[in-house]
Amino acid sequence: MLPMFAEMGGLVHVGLAGLGSAIGVGLIGMKAAEATGRNPGAAGAIRNQAIIFAALAEGVVFFAIFLVK
């Protein structure tokens, strides 16, 4: 177990950021599907918003990869 921790090399933050943004995008998808189910008429607007917020959530990973050394 211990050597595994030794191997980690300090890039844990990228994994956590990936985890966080994946959860974020998943939640957005879930809620968007729910909202479209509840009001199919507004499917277009919901889709647009879902795409934007998913892209915003995804942007976090790239900050973690590139910004933090």
């Binding site: 892209a55 942007g59 990973v61 790239f62 900050f63 590139f66």
Partner: peptide, 13 residues
């Protein structure tokens, strides 16, 4: 910063 990193990151990845 966020705009450029998002586009660059997605395409580069």
């Amino acid at each position: 910063v966020s705009l450029s990193f998002r586009l660059y990151g997605n395409i580069f990845a």
